[in-house]
Amino acid sequence: MATDGESGDDAALVALIARCATQDGQALAELYRRASPTLLGCLLRILRRRALAEEALQDVFVQVWQRAAQFDEYRGRAIPWLVSIARYRAIDILRRERAEAVDPQELAEREMTSSGDPAELELASAGERWLDYCLNALSDDQRATIRLAYLEGRTHIEVASALDRPLGSVKSWIRRGLRALRECLDSCAIRAPS
């Protein structure tokens, strides 16, 4: 599998999505082959149960197939588009299922199922390389709460109970953390050599 540099992954995925818009089933198959391990990893973090995550993965690719024609009006980059479809689908499923408490056994199972070999997609474009830097510039509380909410699809209340911190503080860490993150990323993007 070619992971050719910076946005090679993304450019290839964009081309595949364009072919999906013309009802090219082989393009969907190739898109699936490349992107499904990353998307399933993301879905498992949120949904925790493999069966549920795989069901969501099906929904994601059916949606990709149906919405491929809208992609080019939507944005240039494929990975955030795919990841967003997956994450929002997972959040919707959580809404439906009512999130359950974390079961340590399921967590262990998840770690086991996560030890697969598939190559990761090149997630971040050059502009987002600063994300680590900017995340590190946040306070520990801000960083931890944003990561929990994003990666595990947790609500404010769930983040508060997971960290055993007051709800009001959690809300404000996330809100201020996001604002600080944006300011940092925007200023880095301006300074970044192109």
């Binding site: 990893g41 795989e54 944005r75 980059r77 990841v83 502009g127 680590d132 990666l151 990323l185």
Partner: peptide
């Protein structure tokens, strides 16, 4: 969209997982 772009890098550490074959058959 800008926020989706900014945040997607958070997934960088997340393990990739190969789906079981039946997922593609269903799709």
């Amino acid at each position: 969209r800008r926020w989706e772009d900014r945040l997607v890098g958070l997934l960088a550490g997340v393990a990739t997982v190969r789906p079981s074959p039946r997922v593609w058959r269903e799709i």
